[in-house]
């Protein structure tokens, strides 16, 4: 990879009890690019994604070895502020999970937690985040209605806006379109393409065509190992490893 990396892992291992879920993963995530992680169910791609913002810390019995560097700093360093880490590395989940509050409150929630009280400033952040998430035009007259009244695709873009509101550097997306219809999926994909101008995006997806469409780099994982990682075009046109070839041509998985 020639692009500058924002996150690098080296010899990263993770165990759930006795299960060795991630095995010696060394990967570099390029800054301001979209990196897709693909692989069959249970291969560890979501687990790897959740390592980047230490979400696995919330699970008892998880043990991690190896290092993850974010812009040169080890995120497992004692004294790392995990709340700050998760502000720098935001996350969007498979199912849209807006808070049962208004559209406005959903987006303003993060900045408030991080200490922004000024109404004018909050208004500005909410509008900008909704615009960046390509949602503002659809909800500008409904800012104070419940977020739960939005469609699934709008709710997912609201969750992206909520992530953007705290100005992260990296956005993790775990199957962000799997609960959406093709039109909503198209909007999210277009949005991902725009987001990489300002953010680094790491996306886990089961949809290989989606990985091929939206990402610049792709990593293929299998049974807890990173089998191959490279430019998306190369991975989908001419993968080096037979395992990758067999997976993306549907010969197993």
């Amino acid at each position: 990879m020639t692009d500058e990396s924002i996150i690098t892992t080296s010899d990263l291992n993770l165990w759930y009890h006795d299960t060795h879920a991630l095995q010696s993963i060394s990967i570099a995530i390029p800054r301001n690019r979209v990196t897709a992680l693909i692989g069959p169910s249970g291969c560890g791609k979501s687990t790897l994604l959740r390592c980047f913002n230490r979400l696995n810390d919330l699970i008892d019995s998880v043990r991690v070895t190896g290092t993850i560097m974010l812009s040169g700093n080890n995120i497992h360093e004692p004294g790392t502020d995990v709340v700050q880490l998760r502000k720098r590395i935001g996350m969007v989940f498979q199912k849209p999970n807006p808070f049962p509050k208004s559209v406005y409150e959903n987006v303003a929630y993060g900045p408030r937690v991080h200490g922004i009280k000024d109404k004018v400033e909050l208004d500005r952040i909410v509008e900008k985040s909704l615009c960046d998430a390509a949602l503002y035009d659809e909800v500008r007259d409904r800012l104070h209605e419940s977020a739960l009244s939005l469609s699934g695709g709008q709710q997912q873009r609201l969750c992206i806006a909520r992530t953007l509101a705290v100005e992260p550097e990296v956005i993790l997306m775990d199957e962000p379109c799997s609960a959406l219809d093709p039109i909503a999926t198209g909007k999210i994909e277009k949005l991902i393409d725009n987001l990489k101008q300002d953010y680094t995006v790491i996306i886990v997806t089961h949809n290989m065509q989606q990985a091929a469409r939206v990402s610049d780099y792709t990593g293929f994982m299998y049974l807890g190992k990173l089998i191959e990682c490279g430019r998306t075009r190369q991975i989908f046109e001419n993968p080096k490893e037979d395992l990758t070839e067999n997976y993306i041509t549907g010969r197993f998985g």
């Binding site: 065509q209 989908f236 070839e245 993306i248 549907g250």
Partner: peptide, 10 residues
């Protein structure tokens, strides 16, 4: 129907 990839695409 299948959006083939890799060798299949080639």
């Amino acid at each position: 129907l299948y959006q083939p990839m890799a060798k299949d695409m080639r």
